[in-house]
Simulated assay, not measured.
Amino acid sequence: MTEESIEPASWRVYRDQGLTRVLAAALSAFAERGYDGASIREIAVRAGLSVPGLYHHYPSKQALLVGLTDAVMEELLARSRAAVAEAGPTASERFDAVVESLLRFHMFRRDQAFVASRETRSMEPQARAAYIAQRDEQQRMLDDIVVAGVADGVFRTPFPEDASRAVVTMCVGLSTWYREDGPLTPDELVERYVRIARATVES
């Protein structure tokens, strides 16, 4: 999914991510078995390919991991930007929009987000640096909103960047525990956790 495919009004809508069958197979294997525990042969079987056939698409297991994490961060950043574009002009409106976007992403793309977060340790240095740069860009998006809100008197936290990191960490954590059959609907969960996020920045 590309940034251009997410209109401001559609950032809340989640359909199939459009992963290729090879990346979808890698995602399921990494989510179930971890990067180290999943073999190229297993991923090929899940994709309905031979091992040479899989290598035609991706030259290594590392390339599969990078392909997945690139797709995760591309979509996450696109949705967050679209949320900000749709939000009102105030820091509180933009804050709520980004937090909601993060919450929904980590609910509806939980396997992708979980694999990307857990397997950062498995990336080669250049790939890890690129992923961290994208992750930092997402963090700065909320940092800037909170800092601006404090300057405008909308937020009262004396620790804007720490509060922003705490909020992002809370949102990311959903990918480790959210279940569709849980006691809260997605909308109820978003409403509750946006309130918690607001309290964190003392709005």
Rank of each mutant, 00 (worst) to 15 (best):
V146E: 01
D36H: 11
S175L: 05
V150L: 13
Y58E: 11
H56E: 08
A116Y: 01
R121G: 08
V150D: 02
I145H: 01
A91Y: 04
D143Y: 09
G18Q: 08
Q62P: 08
Q62A: 14
R135A: 15
A166K: 04
I196T: 13
R195P: 07
R79N: 01
A31T: 03
S10F: 12
E191V: 11
R135C: 07
R15E: 15
G67D: 04
A163R: 03
R192P: 07
E191Q: 15
L102H: 12
I132C: 02
P125C: 05
E161H: 05
P186I: 02
E32A: 15
R156Y: 02
S203M: 10
R104L: 15
M141G: 08
T2W: 08
A91S: 15
V172T: 10
S50R: 02
Y35H: 14
A199L: 15
D36S: 15
A148K: 10
R81K: 13
V146F: 08
E74H: 07
L65C: 09
G88P: 07
I40R: 02
R79H: 13
S28C: 08
S164Q: 06
G37R: 03
D111A: 12
S5M: 13
E42P: 05
A26H: 00
Q62Y: 04
R135L: 14
R140G: 09
E7S: 14
R79T: 04
L77C: 09
G173E: 09
A151F: 01
D136E: 11
E75D: 15
I196G: 10
D111T: 03
Y178V: 00
G34D: 09
D144I: 05
A97D: 11
P125L: 07
R81I: 00
T2Q: 14
P183M: 12
M141R: 13
V115M: 00
D143E: 12
H106N: 12
Q62L: 07
I6T: 12
L174F: 14
A129S: 14
E74I: 04
D16N: 14
L54W: 01
T169D: 14
S92G: 08
R94T: 03
S122W: 06
P160T: 07
V150R: 04
H56Y: 11
E137Q: 11
F159T: 09
Y131W: 10
D70V: 09
A116H: 02
R109S: 05
H106G: 00
L49F: 04
G153A: 13
G53S: 01
V146P: 05
I6M: 08
P125E: 01
S50K: 08
A31G: 03
A91R: 00
R33Q: 15
A44Q: 04
F95D: 01
V194F: 03
P52N: 04
G67S: 07
R156D: 11
L142E: 02
P158Q: 01
